[in-house]
Structures are given as structure tokens and as C-alpha cells.
Amino acid sequence: MRSLFEVKFPLVVKWDDKFTITFNLQKGNALEFKGGVYFLHGDNGSGKTTFLNLLALTAGDVGKGGKTGAGSVAYNGEAYNRPGFNHIRAAELRERYFCIFPQKVFFLPVSTRDNYIILNGSDRNREESFSLKEYPDLLSGGQQQKVLMDIILDEKKPVWFLDEPLSNLDAERRHYFWVMLEKAYKINLRTAFFIDHWMGKEIKNDRHFCFYNTLQVVTENRQKDNVPEIESRYIEIYENNVPLEFFARQIEEHLFLKPDAAKEMINGVLCKGLTT
């Protein structure tokens, strides 16, 4: 499956009708996101989540970005600001191609199974493995993150947006996450966007990742009374077009149990989930 994002800069997005955020590129004026893992690194508030939301069509002026001029986002050649592109088409793209793991874990106030059916629902058999009596609203943050991961992450979709997926998880669950990612990459996943503060340094120095480009983010009309106002912030983008080796290393690093036992357990769970 083809999976290609083309972004033209400067990208201007009107936010909440009050202020605008402008993304500029340090080198050149266009970016392409092809297959592989893209890691976004930057300070708090630098606009990483906003940028991902723009790509994932969960924020911004979906069909009206064109009026700002040069900037645009296109997925597989379909520009978000072309005439006739509306919220229905946006939702269609999201539903068919994007897996969005939000920073803020959130559920519908119904049972886990209802959440799965409504939010994903792609696998009838998997549905059965979710409880009808458990209400994820009442779980702790880490637990919620685990459950949401199970519900949302879908190996059938080619693009995953992962906004700090590991922040509340323990080692075992991190391990599970990397296994899932690896598995999905072998099936249908093509492009994964990744934000994580803890792994930042590690990835910067990782030999699998290479520096791709830097985004300059300028916010206008925001927090007017705050002095001094920071004029612009930066987001560094790192790229790994062949991520399997990286996944394998992460799996190994997070393995704290006996290697064989852990693999058996995880494979067992996954296979059950994937084959049924």
C-alpha cells in the first residue's frame, strides 16, 4: 500500500479562530514522509502534537488551509485543502488509513467492548476478548493507556500517529508495544510518527535514525500578556526508513523476563489476537 505525505511550507494553521501557528522548514520548502518511522523531537509546546494533528486531520481548518497561500498537506496525492475536501472525507481518511494514539488518553463512558466496537470494530473476533463489564473510565492512567492501545492500534492501517504512547507504561508493557509495532510493520504499517520525550536523546544518537529536517514554529497572537514571548521554537525530525532492526533492539532492551518465556507469552497473546 502506498503511503506518502507531502507537506509544503510555510504551513499556516488557524487555531481556534484566535491565533495562528506557522510552520517553516529550515532547509527547502517541502517535506515528504514515506515509509519508515519518523521521530519528532522538541521542547514542550513547540508544536509537535499540533503538527501530528494536522497530518492526522484531527485539528486545523481541514478544507480551508489553501487560503493561506503556499502551504498544504497531501496524503497519497490527496491535498487536504483542495476544493470539495470536507470533514466527511477527512473522517473517511482517518477511518481507513490512520491509527491515532492521542496524548490524552480518553474513552467513551461505556464498556471496553463497546469502546472497541465503536472506535475500531474492525475485527469481530477480537471484540469478544474485551470485557462488557469493565469501564475503562475508572482505570488508572497506565491501565487506560494499555487498554486504549489494544483498542486503537490496528495493524491493518498503514499510518500510525503515536503521541507519547510510552509515557505511563512499565517495562513489560513497553516491550509489548514494541512487539506490536514490529508485528504491524511486517503486516501493513508503512509510516509511523512518533513523539516521546524520554527516548529523545537515545534516538538522536541512534545509528538507525538520521536527521531529516528542522521545523521552525512561529505562534502569533498567543498569550499576549506573557512577557517575554518566545518568538519561535524548533522541532527536529529524525527518520528511519528501515526500522525493523530498531524495533528488534527495543524489544530486546525491554525484555526483563527470561527471553524465551517472554517471547512465548507475547507471541501467544499476539497470535491469538491476530489469527482469530
Binding site: H87, I88, A91, E92, L108, L119
Partner: peptide, 14 residues
């Protein structure tokens, strides 16, 4: 509204 927005994030059910 939050729940519905969340729901719409994944599915086109407006």
C-alpha cells in the same frame, strides 16, 4: 461533546 469528538476522530459517523 468530548466523547463524540473522540468518536469522530476514528469513525465517520456524523
Amino acid at each position: 461533546k468530548t466523547e463524540i469528538a473522540f468518536l469522530l476522530m476514528y469513525k465517520n459517523r456524523v
